[in-house]
Design a protein around this nucleic acid. Sequence first.
DNA 1: GTCTATATAGCGATAGAC
DNA 2: GTCTATCGCTATATAGAC
Lengths: 200, 200
Amino acid sequence: MEKRAAILAAAKRLFIVHGFEGTSMDAVAADAGVSKLTVYSHFGDKDSLFREAVRARCREMLPDDVYVVPIDGAIRDALLLIARAHARLMTSPEVIGTWRAILSDCREGNPRMGQMLWEEGPARSQALLEQFLHAAADAGHLDLPDVHRAAVQFLSLLKGDLQTRRLFGCINCAESAEAEALANAEGAVDMFLRAYAREL
Amino acid sequence: MEKRAAILAAAKRLFIVHGFEGTSMDAVAADAGVSKLTVYSHFGDKDSLFREAVRARCREMLPDDVYVVPIDGAIRDALLLIARAHARLMTSPEVIGTWRAILSDCREGNPRMGQMLWEEGPARSQALLEQFLHAAADAGHLDLPDVHRAAVQFLSLLKGDLQTRRLFGCINCAESAEAEALANAEGAVDMFLRAYAREL
DNA sequence: GTCTATATAGCGATAGAC
DNA sequence: GTCTATCGCTATATAGAC
């Protein structure tokens, strides 16, 4: 059970850096320090290996407690806490690489992996945030006409153009980008509260 | 100069549907009705052909007049006009296909194509929308603390989770998706005005 | 300029020995 | 279970004839 872990680790690393087509089974085997046949004996074919690697990545990438925040204090502070954590997550090299790997495989009518990543990642973020917003609305902090829509909107504001520019390689994870992400997160919270705060 | 156009047209179509790796030079030649060597004689190699095809796509995809709207009437109507047009554009098969094709080429540190697409597409949308918002603010319709940020936020709200789910293949361009996109556009305008409208 | 035929190489998957 | 060696296929790019 030692080599299987090594293979999976190599696959997770390589697929995210070089994409599906750009990663050969030889490369995975070499990186894991095993033979290619060992790879095939553990994971039937390249497709299955890719699936396993992406699934593992998704599971370990999204910490649920990011969106579970006490709302006893000011609502702005709670939202800021979520915003900063989410901003850091969505622009991380792991997430960007995983998205690229998935999207490089999402041609025409081929939703095998894309749907999985959506459900394991962004959909869970949305659901957790929705719970938080529902609680905040019940507690009287927010006035939300549609909680689900508000959750989607908050996450969209957080993304801004940062994730897209990151995906396209216009910005890398330098310090300036970090600062921009934090500023953008604050701007998102500000606008969200201008629209939905019950008491300023 | 007839065959060159046919080759470029075939390349634009195939690369966007099947991606870079998924499109062979044989396929391009066959689709264009010419021999493979003719393709190579016109465009040095596959990389150059891909570059040319994507560049052409980017140029022809963004109609500037989408973001040039008179603001003599109600600001909400003007924003809705922009919102609906942008929503239709960003979820179109052409845009989604082009994004996928580009992203399949954006591995590791390779921003050659991604940066181009960003500048030819989203960056121009942002700039044009920023002009519109500036005019709307000057006319007293909106109260914008930061015009650039507001433009990014409006476009982010418009995207919502639609473009991402479309990219990942979770939804296709069916009629229900069209309805969802319009509803989302309206929700985006509503929230934007809740936050930034000077006079309700 | 354009075609058919081919060189060359890389990749996914497997056979057979240990 | 694991390895070395290999098959079969496909794709990029080119050589030589018309």
